Amino acid sequence: MESPQPQFLPVSALSDEQRVDFYRKTYTYVALAVLLFIVTEYLFFQSPVIVNFAMSLTGGWSWLLLLGAFMFITNYAEGLALNSRDKTKHYLALGIYVVAEAFIFIPLLLIAFSMIDGVEMLQKAAVMTIALFAGLSGVVIITKKDFSFLKSILTIGFFLALGLMVAGLLFGFDLGLWFSVGMVALAAGSILYTTSNMVHKYDEEQYVAAALGLFASLMLLFWYILRIFMSRD
């Protein structure tokens, strides 16, 4: 006689105490990922070799790299959450992605630091990013609304963005402020979608995988909010 399979209970079906514990673990790991990002970024900036290598990859392609990495990790996180219960893989994926993000951000942060009031601009961009992230996540957690319908919209939006980036690189035109605004909107939609998945598709043991997807969305949002601030300087 076959042993019964463990019943899958999404976070939305858990008790209030279990849900609170899951959210606490998830957002703790998001905060730890941000802290690891800051520490890794600081260490990278101590190495001229790493900084020079990162700067050699600029010229537009880093934007494609960021978006491509974001799309890959979001799909990977969702796949991990739905198909794997191995926390070791979740921890490894989160660590690798944080380090990759820190490397991708080197050119953008270097340019920001070279600007007048660059540190203040970074602080404002960070505060706005955290506020938007918290507000959007809060909407999903409080209402428990299912935003899975956004998947096809986000997929089309990101492919259009990739197409515009490639066209800009090939034909030498700047995508400008409105492109960054559009990417902020896409990142906001991604936060709604990822948080919705966390509530409706993940179980209580998948908090690391949930943190991975949320961190990816958070960093995409920060990238383009910072770009908007830089364009106004």
Rank of each mutant, 00 (worst) to 15 (best):
A125T: 06
A211C: 02
S47G: 06
L65S: 12
T143A: 04
A188G: 15
L160E: 05
S62H: 10
K87A: 07
T129W: 09
A211R: 02
L65F: 11
G79F: 04
Y76P: 02
V99S: 14
A93H: 07
A102N: 10
I104E: 11
Y224N: 15
G163T: 08
V199C: 05
L136N: 06
Y29D: 00
G118R: 13
L57R: 12
W178P: 03
T129M: 02
D21M: 04
V140S: 00
G163I: 03
I191E: 04
I50W: 03
V166M: 14
P48D: 04
V208D: 03
I111E: 14
L218K: 00
K201V: 03
I142P: 01
S47A: 09
V34Y: 10
A31M: 10
S62Y: 09
V199N: 09
I104P: 02
I142K: 15
F222G: 00
K201H: 11
F53G: 13
F229I: 00
P107G: 08
G60S: 11
R85A: 12
I228Q: 11
E205R: 15
D86P: 01
D203T: 05
V20L: 12
V139R: 06
A100E: 05
L80G: 12
Q123Y: 06
A13G: 02
S196I: 00
G59L: 03
V98D: 01
V49D: 11
S152L: 08
L136F: 12
G59T: 07
R24N: 07
M1V: 11
T88S: 13
E2A: 10
Y42T: 13
T40Q: 08
F53K: 12
I96E: 02
G79S: 13
A161G: 14
E41M: 13
F44T: 05
P107V: 00
Y29G: 00
G176E: 02
D233A: 15
G59D: 06
L94S: 06
D21W: 01
A13M: 07
L218A: 04
A93P: 00
S15C: 07
L94M: 10
M71Y: 04
I106A: 12
I156N: 01
A134R: 07
F159R: 08
M128T: 11
T26P: 05
S152N: 13
L175R: 12
S12I: 07
G176Y: 01
I106P: 13
Y97R: 07
L192D: 05
V20P: 00
F179M: 04
M230T: 01
F44W: 11
I191A: 00
T143V: 09
L221M: 15
V39K: 10
G213L: 04
